[in-house]
Amino acid sequence: MSLTHFFQHLANGVYLGSLYALIAIGYTMVYGILRLINFAHGELLIVGAFIAYYGILIFHLPWWFSFIIAIALGALVGVSLERVAYRPLREREAPRISLLVSAIGASFFLQNLGLVIIGGRHKSFYRPPFFAQTVQLGDVTVMNFLFVLPLITIIILGIVFFLVYRSKTGMAMRALAKDYPTARLMGININRIIAYTFALGSALAAIGGIMYALRYPAIHPLAGVLPGLKCFIAAVVGGIGNVPGAVLGGFILGMLEIMGIAFFPHLAGYRDAIAFIVLIIILSFKPTGLLGEQVVEKV
């Protein structure tokens, strides 16, 4: 493998890694607060991508404006999802497994509603010229977005870290994640904080969905399932509930997926299994993920 090829793979790995990291943060924030695997998070990716797609195609919006609308509406869908499928169970103090079942139901609902409304044919996503410009790197040509998007990711990560670790609402979020009953007694408006968390997580999912669509421009109602699962795994690998852990997990999975195939091309067919294998290995050695806290059950 030549050095330039290696760098190209590296750039791809960073790209995929930062994409996974963005989406994994949404998973991890929701899990941190609700102790719920939001199975429908992967569908929120595709919701974001499709809103952006139709904004450009039907409403002829400028691409950047369409992206902003998609992110905002994505957040709204996430909040409504919580309101309809999770909050009633939460208020009745249902067992966690019930919430999980509801989440699985919501995931299938969104997927198939997408199939009914949009149809099962792949749509080709518009790639703005700003992103599609190419750069010459030695003897390989790379498209602009491979460099631009990791930068955007870093900026967004900065914003998220600020919101979670420096803002007042972020403090309430973390208090809720740490100790639900006490936070409630302290007068934190639980429903508002949870809605806020879902809005933030779903907005990140929509951004991730748009980035995913820019990279792999054929979008489909079921296309969110696999990246959704992989990002969930990234969050678990990093230690679910832990924001830096989600970033770490996202980069590990993204890099492994790209580099694994680059170095062992004959294993390309197993690409989608890599994340699951990493998951199983990590959980066998560190049952709460790389940066996750060890939970000691009180007896």
Partner: peptide, 10 residues
């Protein structure tokens, strides 16, 4: 409408 059945099921 392919998928409608699964919408009902979910």
């Amino acid at each position: 409408a392919p998928g409608l059945r699964m919408v009902i099921f979910s």
